[in-house]
Design a protein around this nucleic acid. Structure first.
Lengths: 243, 243
DNA sequence: CCGGTCTGTCTAGATAACTAGACAATTGTG
DNA sequence: CACAATTGTCTAGTTATCTAGACAGACCGG
């Protein structure tokens, strides 16, 4: 049995959270299995129930567990598998997962993009883009802070349409882009910058999945450059074979 | 610059100690170099001087730094290099290092040893050994908790001699073993058991060097089986080539 | 020897972490 | 429905951690 230490500079709730998280990741607590009750854990670790509750609260924030009043605490059934393919659509994904989604548009602007974005979109030095920053929620939890760039000359007034439709697919459709595919995707693990951490209500030490992608129309013309930042704790990207 | 976080379950002094220890291990603070003053570090980390002092106190316990009143705090010049060879002698080692040593004998007993010890010493199932538990200090700091086994029939009354001489070499000499060599040495890294942690005044999460060795007389007869547990933070075993 | 710069020690108070206990709210079961 | 088990919420008190300031003691360079 893992022991916890007092007075060594690490709070008890933090140690307990680490042990339980490890139990989950290592599979000692199975998917959807019920955790011992808070009282039971308190007895096992020889601490107060409130201390255990604090540990569990942090696990819940990280979506590793789910608590239900009167029933108990359960290991979260699945990390949110996020399929990445040439034909990924966010809203389609979420509908498939039977998750209640919601997108909040934080900010949009017409501006000259960073050079690497301009290059990716095949734009010249002084061509404008629309930048749209948004936050996606699923079941009320923030899962994604994304920044999208669209060529401004090709899609005049795009932000207004996007605000109305709340869907990239729908928006591009109204501009005559009936279909689009993902040209490429780059995935890395990073720690959040201060801005993203604040937006996603994440501690600065929880890793993010940093996904950079380019969508093109069927003829290969780039229509969108996107950066999505997922909570690494419970979003899992799934790379599909043969796509 | 490494930042520290408040209210995340890790005490500030603990975070600061970790950062400084890392600076030392990674060589960003050189051997014997002076650390910034406590006040300077307090300003850099935006905490109180007392908090920094607590961090430094733990580093001093781990012998990573040395503080000198009126002068400053310095990176400890060297870990204690402990040469391992066929002809290793503890007291000789320490004299060479110009370190003031002292051995405290904690316990001795005449008993049937664990089977792996009996095998190593070439003893039968019911042959007795003397077990001697001792603690070695250098410059007043505990560096080593060791357990030694000697065949009891070959060295009757050995513990009394050892208590008098405080030296394995001297003791075996009195029993007519003029010379001995190390047959083999096994080194591993382990966390201390509760007993050893208490004896060595170490936190349970600081690794130990666990050294198991067998000494034989010149004809190859095993005379001692030993287990030594060194503080991993500041003892470094040095394996000599061609020995 | 003097003044500046360190570490060492003390006191006092503020904030975070932990404990203890009571009771409400919800759920499942007999 | 009554009951047991569980999570959720509150209040109060203790301990650990952190801050603030003062001053002593040692060291060093001028």
């Amino acid at each position: 049995m893992s022991e916890i230490e007092r007075g060594r500079g690490v709070a008890l709730w933090s140690q307990i959270a680490d042990i339980l998280a490890d139990d989950i990741f290592k599979g000692r607590l199975r998917q959807s299995e019920q955790l011992p009750s808070a009282q039971e854990l308190a007895t096992r670790f020889d601490v107060n129930r409130h201390t255990v509750r604090r540990a569990i609260a942090t696990l819940e924030q990280r979506r590793l567990v789910r608590t239900e009043q009167g029933r108990g605490t359960f290991v979260q059934e699945q990390t949110l598998d996020y399929p990445i393919s040439r034909r990924t659509r966010f809203s389609q994904n979420m509908r498939n997962l039977n998750v209640d989604t919601d997108i909040e548009i934080l900010d949009d602007a017409r501006e000259i993009p960073p050079t690497h974005v301009a290059e990716a979109l095949g734009l010249g030095r002084n061509e404008y883009v629309y930048r749209i920053d948004s936050l996606s929620r699923a079941d009320g939890h923030i899962i994604d802070h994304s920044t999208a760039y669209f060529p401004a000359t090709r899609f005049p007034g795009l932000p207004a349409v996007y605000r109305r439709t709340q869907s990239v697919t729908q928006t591009l459709n109204e501009f005559g882009v009936g279909d689009y595919v993902r040209l490429h995707t780059r995935v890395s693990a990073r720690l959040p910058d201060a801005h993203t951490a604040r937006l996603m209500k994440l501690p600065a030490n929880r890793p993010l999945l940093h996904v950079q992608s380019i969508n093109t129309d069927p003829r290969g013309g780039p229509v969108q450059y996107g950066i999505a930042r997922f909570s690494g704790d419970w979003v899992q990207l799934v790379l599909m074979a043969g796509d």
